[in-house]
């Protein structure tokens, strides 16, 4: 279902002439409308069975079986400090590809409440993020996009889903074990 939305939207706005990135995927997390650049999005799937991984922070929702590959899923609600999301019929996983280190790319899933649509936001409507006043960590915000006089937060996927940061957190039980015990 989700995939259909993307392709239709992409087809309609495919006549985009400027070579700047002006297409954004919008979705909602904890009743807030957010956007991200479409270029990082690989596909959008309905939420399958998610297997919990023990001893991980709550923003790691678990792992899913994506056509025989094990793909980690990040709960975007928990990641943005809005608390873990409750699964509904509209819940989706946005699969994105993020950079890890020099030339290694990693596929991660991003659990969101609902995928809305794809928007064309012209460059002149993309404004720098406010220095304060947002509940979301400032480095998670890439820019603000103006859509019909409302500002939508455009997330910086590389920061929100920074593998280094997600993996390095002390919540991982056993990390301190290694330091103390051995």
């Amino acid at each position: 279902m989700g995939q259909l939305v993307v392709s239709k939207q992409a087809a309609r706005s495919g006549r985009d002439l400027s070579n700047e990135v002006t297409q954004y995927l919008t979705f909602s997390v904890a009743d807030e409308r957010l956007a991200m650049s479409i270029t990082a999005v690989k596909e959008i799937i309905e939420t399958p069975q998610v297997t919990r991984v023990p001893m991980t922070p709550d923003y790691i929702r678990g792992v899913i079986n994506l056509r025989g590959n094990v793909v980690p899923v990040v709960d975007l609600g928990a990641r943005l400090g809005r608390g873990a999301l409750t699964l509904t019929k509209r819940s989706c996983i946005v699969l994105v590809e993020v950079q890890v280190g020099e030339d290694d790319r990693h596929v991660l899933g991003m659990l969101v409440d609902e995928v809305k649509n794809i928007l064309d936001i012209p460059p002149e409507d993309v404004k720098p993020p406010p220095e304060f006043g947002s509940e979301i960590r400032t480095d998670f915000i890439e820019a603000m996009g103006r859509v019909e006089d409302i500002f939508v937060i455009i997330l910086s996927v590389d920061h929100v889903l920074s593998v280094q940061e997600l993996a390095a957190l002390r919540h991982f039980t056993g990390d301190h074990v290694a330091d103390v015990e051995h």
């Binding site: 991984v53 023990p54 001893m55 980690p72 990693h106 993996a167 056993g174 074990v177 290694a178």
Partner: peptide, 8 residues
């Protein structure tokens, strides 16, 4: 990579 430091 994400679970690199996960033990057990």
């Amino acid at each position: 990579k994400l679970f690199e430091r996960l033990r057990g």
